[in-house]
Computed example of a mutant assay.
Amino acid sequence: MNWTAFRAQAPELATLADEWIADAHVLLLGTLRADGSPRISAVECDVSGDDLCIGMIWQSTKALDLERDPRLTVHSLPPGRENTRGDLKLYGRARALEAPEKRAYEAVMQARLDWAPSEPYHAFAVDVTSAGLVVFEGGGQSVLSWRAGNPVRRRVRDNIA
């Protein structure tokens, strides 16, 4: 589902993700290499229209991964050991942006950075299928999880070793 639909189904998680994106714009992207092994890359993300978008250098290995296998994970890139905001993860599939969506994405980048990518480049929207947030506090953890079509689930686990 696109970012707007994700916001409607899981507003608490989407709000946290929106804050992360607005604050940092840089998240970690997990893709699958041709041999099935994982690849992780730092990427810039922005919300454009109804989509969470990621732009990539033309023919970059991560872009080629997504063209071959659109499954992906996006991670919040924790700021350090004390990570009080927790670990936010989004799971889903990449969808290549077409010309009108790419122009809108370029306008968002131009407004934020006073720079926009020029063709050729790859741009993908993240269609979210599930999400989670884990926050460690007081020797335990608080977990929010969501899967498309289900409500957000909250769990608290104490005394995590």
Results as ranks from 00 to 15, higher is better:
A123H: 15
M56E: 11
P70V: 06
G139P: 15
G140H: 11
M56D: 10
A107M: 13
P79V: 03
G140N: 13
A99Y: 02
K62M: 08
V143D: 00
E119T: 04
P120V: 11
D87Y: 06
D114T: 02
P79K: 04
E98N: 04
R93L: 00
F136I: 11
V47L: 06
Y121V: 00
H122A: 15
A94G: 04
R95L: 07
G132Y: 10
N83A: 12
G140E: 10
P120C: 04
R85I: 05
A148Y: 12
W146C: 08
F124E: 03
R103A: 12
A63G: 05
P78F: 03
W58A: 12
E82D: 08
S145H: 13
V128T: 15
V143P: 00
F124Y: 12
G138C: 13
K89Y: 08
T84K: 05
D127Q: 11
R68I: 02
A116Q: 10
R71I: 09
E119N: 12
R147V: 13
Y121W: 12
T73I: 10
P79E: 06
L113G: 02
T61A: 11
S130A: 15
G139Y: 14
D51T: 09
A116W: 02
E119R: 09
R68V: 00
L97I: 00
E137W: 11
H122T: 14
Y91G: 05
R147W: 14
T61K: 07
T61E: 12
E137R: 12
G80H: 12
K89W: 10
E106Y: 01
T73Q: 12
M56K: 09
A99T: 02
V47F: 06
L66N: 08
L88C: 00
A125E: 11
A107I: 03
E82M: 03
A107P: 06
A116N: 03
D65K: 01
E137H: 13
W115T: 01
V135S: 10
V134P: 04
W115M: 04
M109P: 02
V74S: 14
Q110P: 00
W146Y: 13
A116R: 10
P117M: 00
A63P: 01
P78I: 10
A96H: 05
A123D: 02
A123L: 14
T129R: 03
R93Q: 05
A63S: 03
T84A: 06
D69K: 02
R147C: 12
K102Q: 06
Q59W: 06
L113M: 04
A104C: 01
A148T: 14
G55N: 06
D65A: 07
R81E: 08
A125N: 10
E98A: 08
E98T: 06
A125D: 08
S130F: 14
Q110L: 05
R93F: 04
W58T: 07
R81Q: 10
R81I: 07
A104S: 05
D114S: 03
P78A: 10
E137T: 13
P117D: 02
L66I: 08
L88Y: 06
A116S: 09
P100F: 04
F136C: 14
L64N: 14
Q141M: 13
L113Y: 08
H75R: 15
Q141G: 14
V74W: 00
E101C: 00
G139N: 15
K89P: 05
C53Y: 03
I57N: 07
A148W: 09
A99P: 06
